[in-house]
């Protein structure tokens, strides 16, 4: 899919925010695609991690906000241990989640989890899920 780039399409703020929260320099990414090839969630996400990095380099705020990548990412760190540029992609994903969560928006609602599920789910699932997907 071709995309038009210009000064108007580049959002400097999202680039800065992601750098600040993640502490990672996505500019180092040379688009090899190793992360996408390593991602267990690859067939469930709308924008593969390599492309997320490209969108960040170009400051494509809307495309990043529309992507479900960071919400389906399981923080498995497979991409992190394989990235030849040493970028902590999991941290970049976390920063994209934080951009939403810090606006007090929740992705899951703990009170909607059924009693039946609460009785079955291990504590470690709930604590980690709430940490990652609620504000």
């Amino acid at each position: 899919m071709p995309i038009k780039i210009s000064k108007e399409t580049a959002d400097e703020q999202i680039r800065q925010k992601v750098k600040e929260i993640s502490g990672e320099d996505f500019q180092k990414c040379y688009q090899c695609g190793t992360c996408s090839g390593s991602c267990p969630m690859a067939d469930q996400i709308t924008v593969l991690p390599r492309r997320v990095m490209a969108l960040l380099q170009l400051g494509r705020k809307e495309a990043l906000e529309e992507a479900n990548t960071h919400w389906v990412c399981a923080s498995c760190h497979m991409c992190v241990v394989r990235c030849p540029r040493g970028i902590d992609i999991a941290k970049v994903m976390e920063s994209l989640r934080q951009l939403t969560l810090r606006k007090n928006e929740d992705i899951i609602n703990p009170s909607e989890i059924s009693k039946e599920d609460t009785a079955k789910l291990p504590q470690v699932a709930m604590v980690s899920g709430f940490r990652k997907l609620t504000s």
Binding site: P40, M41, D43, Q44, W71, V72, A74, S75, C76, M78, I107, I108, I113, L121, A125, M126, S128, G129, F130, R131, K132, L133
Partner: peptide, 20 residues
């Protein structure tokens, strides 16, 4: 053996976690 089971996505995307 070293790949992810879906982890906490059992809460966020239970179907995606089930698939992996």
């Amino acid at each position: 053996a070293i790949e992810c089971c879906g982890s906490y996505q059992v809460l966020g995307n239970p179907e995606a976690a089930l698939k992996v």
